[in-house]
Simulated assay, not measured.
Amino acid sequence: MERNSASVVGNIGIGKKTKKSVQRSGKLQPLIWGSILPVILIIAWEFLSKIGVFPKHLLPAPTIIISKIIEMGQDGTLWGHLGITLYRIFFGFVLGVGFAVVLGAIVGYLKKAELLLDPIFQAFRSIPSLAWVPLFILWMGIGEPSKIALIAVGVFFPVYLNIVSGIQGVDRKIIEVGRIYNFTTYQLIKRIILPASLPSFLVGIRSGLGLGWMFVVAAELMGASKGIGYLLVYGQNTYSPELIIASIVLFAIMGKLTDSLLKGLEGKALHWQDSFVKN
């Protein structure tokens, strides 16, 4: 009897270890698959640079780029540039999402608000990011408010569009069911409209963050003395291709890390969805 109970306990322990290992492999699998193509491209890039296919004064090898980033990290300049760029992205993102949530919810829920506000928002959406730069400099100078406002403009439109689309895409039959059960307007929004539009809203937030990283380059053209965008322009002015590409690589890394963070939050927020996953 004791042997049987011991074997059962042992099997349970083995089962738990197996489950943990499966969970770890499941978490590592996206990282492994996502790293294959970048690693292949970096190896090919390094090889072609070594044999002279890519001129060093135009496209330095990856090892030179990494050395430049490490050098900036060791002398401390990298962290100052990263810090100020993340500061601008954070506040511009929060500001843009805040306005988009309020205005998108109003336009999506009220037909008259859509007729009144949506045409002008669609017109503003077509304005290129650089076209806002002289106007914001005129209004707010070259300080942080103009840079944050420009990033907020970039974040606003994709979030706004997805919120409006998500709310207007809610199945009318579900809303009718809520009205049959005498739901108030607040209950309809809380129990039906918000959960149904949440997936579209979260996609909009990720798209907005991506545009925020694009707009930060234009923002840091406005008299900035720090930031990754400033490094990019400084590398151009000093004809330093390794600094230009290092800045682009930093944008790519930081953009991917912040998007992965939002993607993780999206997965937790939508854990209730029975979504299709293709193997």
Rank of each mutant, 00 (worst) to 15 (best):
L130R: 09
A131S: 12
W132K: 03
W132I: 00
V133N: 07
V133K: 04
P134A: 09
L135R: 11
F136S: 04
F136P: 01
I137G: 07
L138I: 12
L138Y: 12
L138R: 07
L138C: 04
L138H: 00
M140T: 04
G141A: 12
G141V: 13
I142K: 09
I142L: 15
G143A: 14
G143C: 07
E144K: 10
E144Y: 09
P145M: 03
S146R: 04
K147Q: 11
K147I: 03
I148D: 02
I148Q: 00
L150W: 01
L150T: 02
I151N: 05
A152N: 03
V153E: 01
V155G: 00
V155F: 01
V155A: 05
V155I: 06
P158R: 00
P158F: 00
V159R: 04
Y160M: 10
Y160A: 03
Y160L: 02
L161N: 10
N162H: 11
N162T: 05
I163N: 01
I163G: 01
S165E: 12
I167Q: 06
I167K: 06
Q168M: 15
Q168I: 09
G169I: 03
V170C: 05
D171M: 11
R172Y: 14
R172D: 15
K173Y: 09
I174T: 12
I174L: 15
I174C: 09
I175G: 05
E176S: 14
E176H: 07
V177H: 07
V177N: 03
G178W: 01
G178K: 10
G178P: 08
I180R: 05
N182P: 00
T185P: 00
T185A: 14
Y186K: 12
Y186R: 15
Q187C: 07
Q187K: 14
Q187M: 12
L188N: 13
L188G: 12
I189W: 14
K190M: 09
K190Q: 13
R191H: 15
R191I: 07
I192D: 06
I193Q: 00
L194K: 09
L194W: 13
L194F: 15
S197H: 03
S197D: 08
S197R: 06
S197I: 05
S197Q: 04
L198H: 01
P199R: 06
P199V: 09
S200E: 12
F201L: 15
F201E: 00
L202A: 04
L202S: 07
V203I: 11
V203A: 14
V203L: 13
